[in-house]
Design a protein around this nucleic acid. Structure first.
Length: 119
RNA sequence: GGAGUCGGUUAGACGGUUGCGGAUAGAAAUAUCUGAGGAAAGUCCGAGCCCCGCAGGGCAGAAUAGCGGCUAACGGCCGCCGAGGGUGACCUUAGGGAAAGUGCAACAGAGAUAUACCGCCGUAAAGCUUGGUUUAUACCUUGAAGUGUUUUGCACUGCCUUUACGGUAAGGGUGGAAAGGCGAGGUAAGAGCUCACCGGUUUCACGGGAACGUCGAAACCCUGUAAACCCUAUUUGGAGCAACGCUGAGUGUGGCUAUACAUUUGCCCGAUGUGCCACGAAAAGCGGCUUGAGUGUUGGGAGCAAUCCCGCAUUGAGAUAGAUGACCGUCCACGACAGAACUCGGCUUAUCGAUCGACUCAAAAA
RNA sequence: CGGGGUGUGGCGCAGUUGGUAGCGCGCGACAUUUGGGAUGUCGAUGCCGCAGGUUCGAACCCUGUCACUCCGA
């Protein structure tokens, strides 16, 4: 399953205005329902983070973490993840566990039994 | 070994699992190959490529500024000359014109591109002085104590003071800079006024391909500033891949007009073209896009060098919200600065280190 | 990709035909008040973003560079 990406500015603005936000030390997640049965992801990395190399690294870390949890995420939602400066100082495993923690508390992850039974 | 100068190379490596962009094969799953830099950065120059209702002239504007070479081109590079710095290796250098003209030179100083305050000298006028002791010499006082004569006087000379007019630029505490410097002659006093020497500029001669150089000759309007205006020489149409082309969609409303508008720094003339401007609606996709002044070469040749020629090998990103990540293992110096966006040549800036080569200085030892 | 602008005391700004760097607010001390505020007097605070150069002399002129910011496509 591939990740569809948000591209247009108006999509981002709709998620910022209508969606709910959840904060971690490394990033902020905005979640909003969409009209499709897809999962769409947008990543925002501002100039505050650093130069082009640092911004690219932040994007890759978020993409890697998101694709790791992708099979368990409920469909039909738009996600926008905004990177914060601290994300450059940690390893990818911490980003992943932090993302899992947030999504689980919100209830966006499917239960693990399906995963186990599939195994 | 110490201190230092210059230049080059490199920019973690290997293996595994799992993901991303591109190409090829395939109906598909998938497989194979390949995938960021020395600066990819800043966007400071120069080009290719490409487009513009032709790009023609003039004025303004802008850029460059020793000479020669290299290059597609350059404001870049190489070599050389001049100037400055360093004991030296070597480094720095916008380095045309001040004798076309204009401007500026604060404070200080008499005076700042010429001046005359003090001083020195000349002329004229006015004033003051020429005393005391002594036979005399001499002594005292004084800025100075002279001469003639008919000797309580008069005249002249000299000294001093003041004023006026003129000469002068030797000297004067300033200043970054005071008519290039210094000595002699000369003069009433002085002065490149004259002369010798030294410096500078220009012209000629000689040497060099040229900048330039010279115990050469002559002339001379000899403060500094042109990164002040300016003058001289050379260059300059503009715009940039969000260029531009194709497909698709759309071609509505309002205003301005031919004495108009456009041709992308301003103005004038010329030339060419015919609508132009604003608002609204809308939608994007594909090409351009990577074989190119390409990359490598302890192969050969030319050249001091930059660089060029020949040969051989090779094809090494092409994304479009924008591709290299994550995890594990081993080793080491424990990994800095940093991400292609049409493409090249330079410049500048950032950078943890590692390593190689050439050379200089000082001291010691052999 | 192209074109501009700014950088000066803690903050906001002046000052650029080159000649000793200023204003307002803020800060400190003193006076005034029973005390505070307001007011008055006095004072401190600057390598004029950084590095070179031109000049006797640079915040100002020139070159390079860094940061911030605006505009157009």
């Amino acid at each position: 399953m591939k990740i569809l990406k948000l591209k247009e500015n108006r999509d981002f603005r709709r998620v910022y205005n209508k969606g709910k936000s959840y904060v971690s030390p490394y990033f902020v997640v905005y979640i909003n329902k969409n009209r499709f049965s897809d999962i769409r992801l947008g990543i925002t990395v501002g100039k505050k983070i650093g130069n082009a190399v640092k911004r690219n690294r932040a994007k890759r870390l978020i993409t890697a973490a998101f694709s790791a949890v992708l099979p368990q995420i409920l469909v039909g939602y738009d996600f926008v993840i905004v990177a914060r400066t601290k994300i450059l100082t940690v390893k990818s495993t911490e980003v992943l566990s932090s993302l899992v923690k947030i999504l689980k508390s919100v209830g966006m992850l499917e239960n693990k039994e399906n995963e186990k039974s599939s195994d």
